[in-house]
């Protein structure tokens, strides 16, 4: 299970780390299982009265951040983001 979750999470674990993490995850999931004891159902309609609905901005053109500023944190950036060569 942990191996499958690691794949979903785009993470890699050595065999040793996997064994340690599996033990910890078992204990954590035991704690999470407490929520199964209570018989309640989520009501999405009711929830909308409590959660603030996203107040989206109008879709209008505006100045964006400068390209240099955006690229300054990308490693290997030239004038665009660089990814490993992809050949299908």
């Amino acid at each position: 299970m942990v191996k499958y979750l690691a794949e979903l999470s785009k993470l890699e674990f050595s065999d040793e780390e996997l064994a340690k993490t599996a033990g910890e995850m078992t204990d954590i999931i035991d704690l999470m299982d407490t929520v199964k004891e209570i018989d309640i159902t989520y009501d999405a309609v009711k929830d909308n009265h409590n959660v603030y609905l996203n107040d989206l901005r109008q879709d209008v053109c505006a100045a964006s951040m400068p390209t240099e500023g955006i690229l300054q944190n990308a490693v290997n950036s030239e004038k665009c983001f660089v990814v490993p060569k992809v050949v299908e």
Binding site: V2, M32, I38, I40, Y42, N50
Partner: peptide, 30 residues
């Protein structure tokens, strides 16, 4: 951080979503 990403993906994954994430949403209401 890795532990929490694993737990989050566990709670959201097919077959567990209703038992964990949706139940947690119900508890938030409660």
């Amino acid at each position: 951080v890795k532990r929490r990403i694993l737990l989050g993906n566990y709670a959201l994954s097919s077959g567990y979503y209703d038992a964990y994430y949706r139940k947690a949403l119900a508890l938030r209401q409660l």
